[in-house]
Write a protein that binds this DNA or RNA. Structure first.
Lengths: 221, 221
DNA sequence: TCACTAATGTACGAACTAGTACGTTAGCTA
DNA sequence: TAGCTAACGTACTAGTTCGTACATTAGTGA
């Protein structure tokens, strides 16, 4: 996510549109994730960059469009990671487990993204709707799941008749909840779902759950 | 959640502290859930009640405390529902499935609550921390799960060594995600997770998943 | 019935906040 | 090297928003 951290080149350019834009996006991502859309302050975002508020309006147009740009870049990061998935050389069971683990890891490593998704849902996904980029591009992970599922069902290993989207929901919901609801859950039940000590436990639990579901003997239906 | 809807008693009292407080809470619940903490407007909440903004400050003290009161009441509703759980006369497998279904139903029927939880997490659960009521009261559902799990494990039906909290995470995450991320998921993947036509499918899927996990044959560990 | 207080309404202000008008300059190009 | 424009900064405003000072009244208890 962090694209800008070169430590002030000795004779660095003062003017660098790409750097300025990227820096604004970096700061805005963090600020929106921290405080929510309405809680975030344009002035605060500007103050944390090396440029001014004027530039936010110059490059992005306004607060709404800035948030949309933040979402676009954040979703871009995930899709990029998903494109790097390399699990299809494994047998279906191992492939699904590996996919679940990578999803788990990605959620854990990008809490800001999780928060942005929560925030966007509070606002009815209106920024996604307003975005041309985010409109109709599917998820590479979904294609991977689709192929693994097909292989697993064909070979008889998988008995459940889920489709790829369903399985994606199943995997994502566990990973998402653990990060997104960390605070209320911790406050109410006294267990930190993201504590390092619990990490392996939940990571394994997710894989076990998905595989158990896919391979369970089911009553004739 | 709605506590106030008596249609203006002919000779109704003008002054009714309990009714005024309840009406403010009703409206505030909806408004906070709709727009988030910072997006909600105290003036807007007041305008939608039959009283004035002055009363919000009179009864609750301020916006923060109002939000805390909203959370307290919303969590109270769930706990009340959980206290009504009556599944322990069933065998462990049926009991867990029934519990999952009731959790599923409750999430579906209380989208405002789901949104409030999302919002509270964005703010690091600081209002829960500030609340005396919400502090250390556990969940009745958790006790139910604990007992069912114990019975299932004792009888050998359940092979997984999860504790009640883990199972609660598993069930809740699926139910929560489906409602909370409905908008972004629908916008990105084109599937409405809360569409009535899909309801039974996901409801069954949740039960199958949990039972498969609990009863799966696992490698010796 | 009278007085007293809980409950309520009105009007206002101080601080904040998104957005902009206007002015300046770096650095590329002809 | 002159000039042109993208990139940038400053200072300001209009509108909003939480919160409160002050005024008022319903209804109850003595």
């Amino acid at each position: 996510m962090t694209s800008v951290e070169e430590p002030a080149r000795p004779n660095g350019r003062i003017r660098d549109a790409a750097r300025t834009k990227a820096e604004i996006l970096d700061v805005a991502t963090h600020e929106f994730a921290r405080a929510g859309y309405d809680g975030a302050r344009v002035d605060e975002i500007a103050a944390r960059t090396r440029t001014t508020k004027r530039m936010i309006y110059y490059y992005f147009g306004g607060k709404e469009q800035l948030f949309t740009a933040v979402l676009e870049r954040s979703y871009g990061v995930i899709r990029e990671a998903e494109r790097g998935l390399d699990v299809e050389h494994l047998d279906p069971v191992a492939a699904i487990r590996r996919l679940a683990e990578l999803t788990f890891d990605h959620h854990e490593q990008h809490p800001d993204f999780i928060r942005l998704v929560s925030i966007e849902n509070i606002h009815g996904a209106e920024h996604i709707a307003a975005s041309e980029k985010l409109g109709k591009i599917g998820s590479p992970a979904l294609d991977v799941i689709r192929r693994i599922l097909e292989a697993g069902q064909k070979s008889g290993l998988f008995t459940a008749d889920v489709d790829a989207v369903d399985l994606h929901v199943m995997i994502s919901s566990f990973c998402f909840f653990r990060v997104a609801n960390r605070h209320t859950f911790g406050a109410l039940f006294g267990r930190d779902l993201v504590a390092p000590a619990q990490r392996e436990h939940y990571r394994t639990m997710l894989g076990d759950m998905v595989i158990a579901y896919l391979t369970a003997e089911r009553a004739a239906d």
